[in-house]
Structures are given as C-alpha cells and as structure tokens.
C-alpha cells in the first residue's frame, strides 16, 4: 500500500432528525483509502457500514438523514460534502462507483444491461451511440461476461445471480472510476460464485489500480481480499489498521469477539462463540464506550468516558481504554 491517498474520510457524522428530535447514526468516522488498496469495513448489522458509504456518496436513503459534520476529501482536495449537484454528478460514476448486495433490484428491470452501461458512457464521456456501444462490450468482456455481443441485449432477470453481480460491476465501472464501493456484494451468492466475484475484484485492482471499499459481515472474506480493515460498532469506528494486525492482534474487545466468532478461526472446537447481548439502538446509545454493556473488560471508566480512536502503532488505531492485547499480556 504505497499508493497515493485517493480518498480521506474525516470525522464523518450523520444524524437522523424528525419532529421528535434528532440522534446520531454515524459519529466521527475517519479512514483513508490509497490507490490500489482494498479496505474492508466489518461490523454487525446496523453498525452503520452502509450508511458510511451512502454518506460519502451523498446518497442518504431518507431526507431525514443529514451529514452533520466532517469531510470526504478527494485526491484533489475537494470535499464531496461541499460539492454542487453538477460536480457531484461527475464524482459519482467517474471517480467513485458503487455496487450493492442485491443486483436484481439495483439494476433497471426494463432496460437492457448493455443500454444501462452505454447510457453512463454516453452521458459522462459525451460519446456517440456506436463508440459507447463498443466501449460497453469491452467492459462486459473485462468483467468476464461470456458472449458480450448477445448478453448486452439481455435484461436483468435473464442473468444468473453471479452474472447479475458481474453486470452490476460492469455498470459501476462504465466510466472507469478510481474507487469502487462494494456494499456486501457477495452476501447473497453461494460460496463458489462468491469466490469468483472476489477474484474478479482482486483482478480489477491489480489490472486497473482500482481502490475498493468492501463492506462485509464476514471476517474470512476480509482476510482473503482486503489490505486494511475498519471495524465499526454502533455508528463508530472502533478499530482500524492493516488486515494482519487487526485480525491476528485485535486490540478492541469487540474486534476480539468478532475474530473469536469466526467459524474458521483456529481452536476448532466446532462451537462458535457469540458476543453476548445486542448492539444498542441509535436512539439510546450508552454513555462512555458504546460497547461497554457487552464488554468483559469494562470498568467504571468505560461507562463514563468515550475512548478516543488513537493510533497505538503506526497505521493501527483503536478506541479502547483497556486494549485487549495489553489485557492478555497482563494476564500472561
């Protein structure tokens, strides 16, 4: 990961507001993405992974949600949160592309795949019909769709799950963005197809220098695919660093719990432990460390003060008053 910084998210916060008041959904989320890097964002359902990506694309799912602070800096220093509609339209598609968990609902069912790709090319690059069509065939080939000339005229419902996800990747890559945001793109696929899609993403990174933000529940996938990991809990980042560091030496107790929950992790008892308790609702976040009601190492300090995200080793930061690796050392 020696590439240049291509995106930095700085203290991004999102709040939900309605007549009954307002509460934060995302709090102070910060990370950076370098050229050719694959960053994994993991966390339980509802921890704010999708919201983070939606916020940095300015695609929040409801008018009640608002970016309340922070910045999303592009390579050239511009802040996505401050862009005009025209600039935003250029950034989406040409700089940042996005793919989703359910390609069937995220593709237009009444427009052929080829036309959906060609449409973006024509709009962004101001190309004619024939040139756009030729480029579109090229992209279909690159994402591994066989026989692109005839598949281009097919509709979403005529593709299998894996091919549909490839088609959505092709649509997102139509205008050659530098960054691809992938929100759980393989969760709905079976294992073999999932492996194919992961290989495709890796290949796109290697060949095009694409940077990828990959959202998943699955630490195994992170281990296989990513360079860095950000762990989210209840709308905050709790640990962030290189993959090996975070997975082999988790410092936050939530990360440690996630690692222990992985069925493939060593130990091999066949019994998968779970983290007891439920994640909090954004409507009533606990004081102090948001994980303290579920944390075995919690004390009065944890309940009273929110731990800041601090860099303990170069590139590896963690928000915990009593980091797990230190606790383990003390016990040893």
């Amino acid at each position: 990961m020696t590439g240049a910084r291509i995106l930095s998210v700085e203290n991004l916060s999102v709040a939900y507001e309605d007549a009954g008041g307002s509460y934060n959904i995302l709090d102070d989320v910060s990370f950076t993405l370098r050229k050719g890097e694959i960053l994994g964002i993991v966390g339980e359902s509802g921890s704010g992974k999708s919201m983070t990506c939606r916020a940095l694309m300015r695609l929040l799912p409801s008018s009640r949600l608002r970016e309340t602070g922070g910045a999303v800096r592009l390579e050239d220093g511009r802040d996505v949160l401050g862009l005009s509609q025209d600039e935003l339209s250029e950034v989406r598609g040409r700089r940042i592309g996005m793919i989703f968990q359910n390609p069937a609902s995220h593709l237009d069912p009444v427009m052929s795949i080829g036309r959906q790709i060609a449409e973006s090319i024509r709009y962004h690059r101001k190309l004619g019909r024939t040139e756009a069509w030729a480029q579109m065939l090229d992209i279909l080939r690159q994402v591994g769709i066989p026989d692109p000339e005839s598949r281009a005229n097919a509709y979403t419902h005529e593709f299998s799950g894996g091919m549909r996800q490839r088609a959505m990747i092709a649509v997102a890559l139509a205008c050659d963005p530098d960054i691809l945001i992938a929100d759980e793109p393989t969760t709905a696929l079976d294992v073999t197809v999932q492996a194919q899609i992961l290989r495709l993403l890796q290949q796109l990174r290697d060949e095009r220098g694409l940077s990828i933000i990959f959202i998943t529940h699955d630490l195994g996938v992170v281990y296989q695919l990513c360079d860095t990991v950000a762990v989210m809990y209840a709308g905050r980042l709790c640990e962030y660093g290189p993959k090996h560091e975070v997975i082999h030496h988790p410092r936050h107790h939530y990360t440690a719990g996630l690692v222990a929950c992985q069925p493939s992790s060593e130990g091999g008892t066949g019994l998968v432990p779970t983290i007891p308790g439920q994640p909090p609702s954004p409507r009533d976040m606990p004081m102090g460390c948001r994980f303290h009601p579920r944390c075995g190492a919690a004390d009065a300090l944890c309940a009273a003060r929110q731990p800041p995200l601090e860099e303990s080793q170069p590139g590896h930061s963690c928000a915990c008053h009593h980091p797990a690796d230190l606790v383990a050392e003390a016990e040893a």
Partner: peptide, 28 residues
C-alpha cells in the same frame, strides 16, 4: 427504488434518472 438509487450512484442527474428509469418503470 434501489434501481433509481443505483442510477444516481452512476452520476446520472436527477432529471435523467427520472425520465429514463423512473418513468418507464412506472408506466408498466
């Protein structure tokens, strides 16, 4: 709909998304 969100994520402007993707689907 998800497909309109995805069209916006491709950088297509709102008017374009409306007439090319929202209207054809609502005519069905």
């Amino acid at each position: 709909s998800d497909q309109a969100t995805a069209a916006r994520a491709r950088g297509l402007p709102e008017t374009f998304v409306f007439w090319r993707h929202v209207v054809p689907n609502s005519l069905v």
